[in-house]
Design a protein around this nucleic acid. Structure first.
Length: 1031
RNA sequence: GGGCGCGUAGCUCAGCGGUAGAGCACUACGUUGACAUCGUAGUGGUCACAGGUUCGAUCCCUGUCGCGCCCA
């Protein structure tokens, strides 16, 4: 049955993929040669909520190319797939689903029920991206598909946390973190997008305490006084007036002479009830920029990263103003009491961090306000009180038109950088909270060293700089998230009974009523910070707590450790059992309640363990042994920090080995105008739609051909359509071969050894492209591989070889030509397969010899032949001559407007031996392709077009047809161009310095070019002279 | 402000010491034994600008001007 006219991708792709899966073609080690070297790629795990976008399509195409290429070459290959549980994103998706279906929300249903819902959702929808990757043709070992929340993976993550904790590399602390008020969780600074937005800078007066005054002097650059006045205030500029409520100080630069007189004094925060105005000190610090604003900066340590630094350096308290939703706090005592506590601190009273955090300095009137509402209120109140800095503004009177000067609050409109959550899109609030951190400074060095000394190579090289820069300035990594979906932190807390001064007064190993009463009624144990222990599970943690309990007075020392929900439940449980004990005096019911840290780990903490975790660590599995460290990681530059750097740090910290040998960082896929694809811009190309329309192979080939290292892809459907045409081209070349009986009958094994130049030539060209492809892929120059194949298949095989073969099928070389063509097409399928797996596999099967193929193409042996072995220089030279002669004739004919269909006689004017041989051996194909019907040897006839070939001159007699002027113009133009080149060559060769200093082969090459050019120029001049005679 | 990168044909981009290439687009012609998702031929470039190094610079160095991205 003859082949269809085009490849039906939509029909073939699912069928072929299913067959690959059926035979286990992608399994780890499939098609491996004995004792093969391993080759392993870890997929960058897509979010379980994810669906395939162009970035994935690009990223996974490149991975698949490397994997298929290695598998065909007989490596022991593993492409490890999997998904990431994506804490925030998944929780968001499921919460949205619940809301949509009118189900109770997360908080209503509680943690356990909610997590069940998440798992339910995961089972239903979590496989989306897997199927989409299959449509792309990704040859992952799906039997090994991993998930960061798999039981095994969870164990690995928890083990790493516990290990790092016990090594002192993880700690808990109250730190300023990026707080997402929408999700009510901390996020890492990498999850914050800083965007410039229109903002305002307000200027307010902070009155000096006790009405004190000073002389404020401003000078210009020359030191001349420009302003001198007596002030009773210090002027402060701020973009966030609502944070004034939490100010702990005003800071000026130590060198700022303007404020030197008042450093060390107190000033008043000009907001809040007048009778309870707080006083804060004026301090010096290097942070304020004297040239910016007024030069004086208010310090709100709990709500600004720079201020936090100043506060820490100077012992300034950090007052938290907001709750988890970034509304102004409504907890605590009335403002008057709280302000008094803060005042006591200024006056030197010692407070603990927890006590400071408990102070709510939000004036009663502002409590519960949204932060942006609070800002308005603060500004309005200060302005009303006359403490805004005023500036004169002159405007024309609306009636008289006379200029009128009035004073208005000084508010600058200026762009400010504002942090937004990359998922929630709400303004991120720096917030002082208790979080867990990885002490990255302690584990960063091995990750830096590994890249410095080349154990891991990052390509393209420029990304190494980015990597080093980030690691060398590493910040502690906040790994706790106030979410439910994820790996819950393996830390349990228990009440610290000692801290309260609890004791067995009589030392009688029994709690008497007085002692229990103290615990219960004074609730003393409620005040201290809880104790905590870290361990893989509750049993292990109980052991740790038992050591603590042992030191407690009897009978509490033997209390049973039980797990409760939280601190509140713990207090209640302890109270209950003590009360019961008081009645029963039965110590066996005494319990020591502990509760687990409710937070989960940053998703990147778990994906940081992806390489070892998916291979079975901590169990010493054969896979871990075999495939780790992995070979290559292919990823986008946007997650070098998020993921690559963290995998490097964590693998080195946990197993002391680099996770991969090479990191290939690819660029971004943009739209055809170079814009980032985004839903809001509506310029997103959906890879699945593109696959539907053009086929997966076309999409894959397109992104591969555009994958120049370090350069973004500007993708357009026109480009994809172009490469879809390329798939059709291969298809039709095969169809041609099929129609000419190429695939009928037995085929010789091995590389054909034909006699005819054409066949010998194409084999040499095939060897060339095989080397080019291997070299390109080895260097991660995917675009070079794709372009080499495109040029070979279309430009060599289809444009020339197929055309040359046509006459040969009728002659004595028909059989070897069929054999050669079958072999050449096989090589096309094999070499193109990593990039275009579907089309090539289909053709591989369609063109199978009668006895069938030994293996499917996905496992076909990748060739190793070399140009040095297969290329016949004589054939190569000859075919180059033939091709350029045909092109010359075609070009001349076309320019002379010779009708395409007209067959012309040709005259051989002169020729050397090589040219004569070349002609004789290829006469039929030249005649056919150049539309020549005969060749006679004669002097150049009058009125003929001249064709100059290497070593020969031909003429096409066109008496009467040719336009002399046009032919003159054609030849003159050719001569001019040639002369320009020749002049360049001559002047270079005439330069003694060139001959002396340029490499020998370059000089020789130039001489040859000059000689050849001179010969051709001579022929053209002769032809022009003849034309002149005619005129 | 700091860092990284990019300015090459109308467009998208390769090339990165030996005097410029591809694809698309465009123009003309064309159904020749596979392919109109095609064929043949052609038009089109001071390789951003200015200096420098070199026998020779699109390529290396310095500066200028534009444009991106990342980090403050």
């Amino acid at each position: 049955m003859p082949m269809e006219k085009t490849f039906n991708a939509a029909e073939a792709e699912p069928r072929l993929y299913a067959e690959w899966e059926r035979v286990g073609a992608f399994r780890a080690g499939a098609n491996a040669k004995p004792n093969a070297d391993p080759f392993c790629i870890m997929i960058p795990p897509p979010n379980v909520t994810g669906s395939l976008h162009m970035g994935h399509a690009f990223n996974n195409t490149l991975q698949d190319i490397l994997v298929r290429w290695h598998r065909m070459r007989g490596f022991d290959t593993l492409w490890q797939p999997g998904q990431d549980h994506a804490g925030i994103a998944t929780q968001m998706v499921v919460e949205r689903e619940l809301a949509k279906s009118q189900q109770p929300g997360r908080r209503e249903m509680g943690r356990e029920a909610f997590l069940d819902k998440v798992w339910e959702w995961k089972e239903q929808s979590g496989g989306t991206i897997i199927n989409q990757l299959k449509r792309l043709g990704a040859s992952c070992d799906w039997d090994r598909n991993a998930f960061t929340m798999d039981a095994h993976f969870q164990q690995a993550v928890i083990k790493v946390f516990v290990d790092l904790y016990h090594k002192g590399l993880i700690y808990r602390g109250k730190r300023l973190v990026n707080w997402d008020p929408h999700f009510e969780t901390a996020i890492s600074d990498l999850e914050v997008e800083n965007t410039e937005v229109a903002g305002h800078m307000w200027h307010f007066k902070y009155p000096l305490a006790g009405g004190e005054t000073y002389e404020y002097v401003e000078r210009d650059a020359e030191g001349e006084v420009t302003l001198r006045e007596v002030r009773d205030y210090i002027s402060i500029a701020t973009t966030r007036p609502e944070t004034m409520l939490g100010d702990g100080a005003v800071a000026v630069h130590p060198s700022d002479a303007r404020y030197a007189p008042i450093v060390g004094k107190l000033c008043e925060i000009p907001v809040g009830p007048k009778e309870h105005r707080r006083l804060i000190p004026i301090i010096t610090d290097e942070y304020p920029d004297a040239a910016f604003g007024s030069g004086a900066v208010k310090i709100t340590g709990a709500h600004d990263f720079n201020d936090y630094g100043v506060a820490k350096r100077n012992g300034i308290p950090c007052y938290r103003l907001m709750d988890t939703r970034a509304t102004l706090r409504a907890d605590g005592a009335p403002y008057a009491e709280e302000a008094a506590k803060a005042q006591a601190i200024v006056e030197g009273k010692a407070f603990t961090e927890a006590e400071i955090d408990a102070i709510n300095l939000v004036p009663d009137a502002y409590r519960g306000l949204d932060r942006f509402e609070a800002r308005k209120a603060v500004v309005a109140d200060i302005t009303a009180e006359g403490l805004a800095v005023m500036v004169p503004v002159t405007t024309p009177d609306p009636e008289t038109g006379e200029p009128v000067t009035s004073h208005v609050p000084y508010v600058e409109n200026k762009p400010i950088m504002q942090p937004f959550g990359d998922r929630s899109k709400v303004v991120i609030e720096p917030m002082l909270t208790d979080q867990w951190f990885v002490d990255t400074a302690k584990i960063v060095q091995p990750a830096i060293d590994a890249v410095r000394d080349g154990r891991t190579v990052i390509l393209p090289e420029q990304h190494e700089k980015v990597y080093f820069h980030w690691l060398e300035n590493i910040e502690p990594w906040c790994i706790s998230r106030q979410l439910w979906w994820g790996h819950q932190i393996p830390v349990w807390y228990g009440l610290d009974l000692f801290q309260t001064g609890f004791a067995d007064d009589e030392g009688d190993n029994a709690l008497d009523e007085v002692e229990i009463f103290r615990l219960l009624n004074e609730g003393a144990f409620n005040h201290g910070d809880p104790r905590h222990h870290c361990a893989a599970d509750l049993d292990a943690v109980c052991e740790a707590f038992k050591a603590y309990l042992a030191a407690l007075p009897a009978p509490l020392h033997a209390a049973r450790v039980v797990e409760v929900a939280d601190q509140h439940a713990a207090i209640e449980a302890l109270a209950t059992c003590l009360a019961e004990y008081n009645l029963s005096q039965d110590p066996t019911h005494l319990v020591y309640p502990v509760w687990r840290d409710p937070d989960v780990l940053d998703t990147w903490f778990s994906s940081g363990l992806w390489p070892i975790g998916t291979l079975g660590w901590p169990t010493d599995t054969p896979e871990l042994e075999r495939y780790f460290p992995t070979s290559t990681l292919i990823t986008g530059f946007d997650i070098i920090f998020f993921w690559v750097a963290r995998m490097m740090m964590m693998q080195l910290a946990v197993v002391d080995q680099v996770p991969f040998r090479t990191v290939y960082v690819h660029a971004l896929v943009r739209d055809e105008k170079g814009k980032k694809m985004s839903k809001s811009l509506g310029n997103v190309l959906d890879p699945l739609e593109l696959i539907d329309e053009y086929g997966a192979d076309a999409v894959r080939f397109t992104v591969t051909a555009m994958a120049a290292m370090g350069r973004d892809l500007k993708l357009s459907t026109a480009r994809i359509a172009g490469y879809r045409n390329f798939t059709t081209k291969i298809w039709n070349a095969t169809r041609f071969a099929e129609m000419n009986g190429v695939f009928i009958g037995p085929r010789p094994t091995g590389i054909p050894q034909p006699r005819h130049t054409v066949n010998r030539w194409i084999i040499g060209e095939t060897a060339r492209v095989r080397e080019a492809v291997d070299e390109a892929l080895a260097g991660y120059r995917f675009n070079d591989a794709a372009n080499a194949l495109y040029a070979f298949v279309w430009g060599k095989v289809c444009d020339w070889y197929v055309e040359f073969a046509k006459p040969l099928f009728d002659g004595e070389d028909a059989e070897e030509t069929r054999d050669t063509m079958a072999w050449v097409l096989d090589q096309c399928y094999i070499l193109c397969h990593p990039i275009m797996p579907f089309l090539t596999e289909e053709l591989w099967e369609l063109t199978a010899p009668p006895i069938g193929r030994a293996k499917p193409l996905v496992h076909a042996d990748w060739p190793t032949y070399r140009a040095s072995g297969l290329l016949d220089p004589a054939a190569d030279r000859e075919m180059t001559w033939v091709i350029s002669l045909i092109e010359e004739i075609r070009s001349a004919r076309s320019q002379m407007h010779v009708p395409v269909g007209l067959r012309l006689p040709m005259v051989l004017v002169e020729a050397d031996g090589a040219a004569r041989t070349a002609w004789q051996r290829n006469e039929s194909l030249i005649q056919r392709l150049a539309r020549i019907d005969s060749l006679t040897e004669a002097a150049a006839p009058k009125g003929a077009i001249t064709i100059a070939a290497e070593g020969a001159t031909f003429a096409l007699p066109l008496d009467g047809v040719i336009d002399v002027a046009e032919e003159q113009a054609r030849l003159t133009k050719a001569l001019e161009k040639l002369e320009k080149d020749l002049n360049g060559l001559r002047s270079r060769l005439d330069n003694p310095k060139f001959v002396a200093s340029a490499p020998e082969e370059i000089v020789e090459e130039n001489r040859e070019k000059l000689a050849l050019g001179d010969e051709e120029a001579g022929k053209i001049r002769t032809a022009l002279a003849r034309l002149a005679d005619m005129g």
